[in-house]
């Protein structure tokens, strides 16, 4: 057993008795701004392939850290390190000030780091309240009479969703009848209820329309208000800007900087995302084929100027 594994196992043992499946939503959250996760020059190598290098940022209670980057920029490698799916090979990952290597998603979960993936892990044909508690159902009674605590399940699901700002007519409806944005929010509310302090949202708005994206952004803001630390992965700066407190940009496996909101503007963010000079070159190329007064060209120029 390596030192890292030992450490992770110890961490797990320490946490299991306190966290496990117990809802911790009643705990008083740490004061906003307390760093929960800090990464310093973190990196990941697969053999001689460098997937990620020199990434530095922090995730704080009551704040949203946006991880921005185009496809293949290293976003998924980064969240896999935070979620415990991959261990980092370089740099340092500190959780609550203690340097750690997360060896499995279970270890991350026990530390209160929950990841909501794009497929959401819900069963479409099952009612909302059954989905909410799936895998951790509360029961009452003993022996053969041990049964689901249906009334608690229904009211808790309804209240927790209401706290996230989702007002459901009927928690008995199959979760498949909810819109994509609402399903996302049920998954978020579930993670929060089962003790998450840090929420990692993997491109929650990628598959959604404009209106539904707005709904999800509202719930992200709501989670932040409740004192949670949120890691919001997206490739859309226009989604990140309204809810983000801190922006970390990734490009080709490297960090392009980590900025508090006060040190950056949306225009600059967009320009950095798009890759400044490359976009400039592209707009010139398109200009010659589409003409200078094309709307697309004007938009692109406006963006690169930022």
């Amino acid at each position: 057993m390596t030192a890292h594994e030992k450490q992770a196992v110890e961490a797990e043992e320490k946490r299991t008795d306190t966290v496990a499946d117990e809802p911790t939503s009643t705990d008083t959250p740490p004061p906003p701004g307390t760093p929960i996760i800090e990464v310093e020059n973190i990196g990941k190598r697969y053999g001689n392939v460098i997937a990620l290098s020199d990434v530095t940022t922090s995730v704080r209670a009551g704040e949203v850290t946006c991880v921005l980057g185009d496809n293949g920029a290293g976003k998924s490698t980064f969240i896999k390190i935070l979620a415990g799916a991959h261990e980092h090979t370089d740099g340092e990952l500190k959780i609550d000030g203690i340097s750690r290597h997360l060896s499995s998603p279970r270890v991350a979960l026990d530390l209160g780091i929950a990841t909501v993936y794009q497929d959401l892990a819900v069963v479409p044909l099952m009612p909302v309240w059954r989905n909410f508690f799936l895998g951790s159902e509360p029961t009452k009674g003993f022996g053969p009479l041990r049964r689901l605590d249906v009334s608690t399940m229904k009211t808790t699901a309804k209240d927790e969703l209401a706290a996230m700002g989702i007002d459901l007519r009927d928690v008995d409806q199959p979760i498949g009848t909810l819109s994509g944005g609402e399903r996302q929010c049920v998954a978020i509310a579930r993670a929060v209820y089962f003790g998450a302090r840090v929420l990692i949202l993997d491109e929650p708005t990628a598959a959604l329309g404009v209106k539904q994206s707005g709904v999800v952004l509202k719930y992200i803001a709501k989670a932040r208000e409740r004192g949670l630390a949120v890691v919001f992965i997206t490739h859309n700066p226009h989604h990140a800007w309204p809810v983000g407190d801190r922006f970390m940009l990734l490009r080709r496996g490297k960090s392009m900087g980590d900025f508090p909101k006060s040190e950056i503007t949306l225009d600059k963010l967009t320009a950095m995302m798009a890759g400044g000079t490359e976009l400039d070159a592209l707009s010139k190329e398109l200009e010659s084929s589409l003409g200078a007064d094309s709307e697309l060209i004007r938009d692109m120029k406006a963006e690169t100027r930022g």
């Binding site: 497929d119 892990a121 819900v122 479409p124 044909l125 099952m126 059954r130 799936l134």
Partner: peptide, 13 residues
């Protein structure tokens, strides 16, 4: 609950 879940969406369960 588990029976419905494994039949409805095994991976998610």
């Amino acid at each position: 609950n588990w029976i419905f879940a494994v039949g409805g969406a095994q991976t998610a369960s």
